[in-house]
Nucleic acid binder design. Structure first.
Lengths: 164, 164
DNA sequence: GCTTCTCCTACCAAATTGGTAGGATTAAGC
DNA sequence: GCTTAATCCTACCAATTTGGTAGGAGAAGC
């Protein structure tokens, strides 16, 4: 498994926020019900997105979360990095420099193992796929799916799928 | 984490076999010592490679394992598939058709969720990176590393790194 | 018949994951 | 100023996965 439910739920959450017509805050409770996800768990996940400054929050009654940026400017590599901590193909990859790209701890003196060569290539593939996908694209995709299924009353978001 | 140590150790094992000048069988014990890996665990891993017909074995004294094919014709997507079972980006991806590519179980009636769209893209990136890497390439890489470090007596394989 | 191998299966400890519980704190609306 | 609806924060917990060990049983060379 590459990603955990943190990434799954976190991305769903962002897509829900992106689907919102205005940018008035949306409560987690509403999102949890919409997506059929456990509220308490979502709270911990959204905290990761907030720390990464991908969402903003308003506390108190009628509060909630909204996107901190335009969906066009949010790429999935940032998102997954915020949610999962890093994109490491292998346990020998230890957090090192910059944006989720991590280096192998096996050999430090310039030498490299053959497996590192392979995992770096894989990691590159993952990060590139993430980087070229924007939140806006996912929002558009999910909107299209809705239209294809049922003409919805405007602003009424139905759950994309219900596990419950 | 994308892959577990099964992939790591399994690939190392194959590289070791590929480094062998002749194709007389090599015992797991030798490989375990060379790479500093636990023998009993390696036994279980090599069983996966054998089931996938990537290695062949000879039992009994002076037995061991050898590659079943030319390293040029062994691509890493087969290898990782054999070792890890599948390359699923997310738990909702359930084993389905063909070569490790799996489909989302969330929605079955033609509809799709936005996250599935994303994970499919990521999965594609991983599989493509694996598919374009051959065992021969990794063997060549590891040989080059050796030369760069110390001129070795021929046929004497030093450990690439020692954890022990 | 010893030794050196592959092979097989059951067990096990540690870590991770996915989730719950319980409560502060903050702000809107009356 | 009370109530209510929210974000925030932290500790706990059960299930699963992971990485590995143990203990053998068969095969083949010497």
């Amino acid at each position: 498994m590459i990603f955990t439910t943190k990434a799954e739920y976190g991305v769903r959450l962002l897509v829900e926020l992106g689907r919102q017509p205005s940018d008035s805050p949306v409560s987690l409770k509403a999102i949890a019900e919409n997506e059929g996800l456990p509220l308490a768990y979502l709270e911990r996940i959204v905290a990761l997105l907030k720390r990464a400054e991908l969402v903003e929050s308003t506390r108190g009654a009628h509060g909630g979360y909204r996107l901190a940026r335009d969906p066009e400017n949010v790429t999935m590599d940032e998102v997954v990095l915020a949610l999962e901590g890093s994109v490491a193909p292998m346990s020998c990859f230890v957090d090192e420099t910059d944006d989720g790209r991590v280096l192998c701890s096996h050999v430090d003196d310039g030498e490299a193992c053959a497996t590192k060569f392979l995992w770096l290539r894989v990691q590159g593939g993952v990060i590139e796929a993430l980087r070229r996908t924007t939140l806006a694209e996912l929002v558009a995709f999910s909107a299209k799916q809705d239209v294809a299924k049922t003409p919805l009353p405007l602003g009424d978001a139905l759950p994309l799928h219900s596990n419950a």
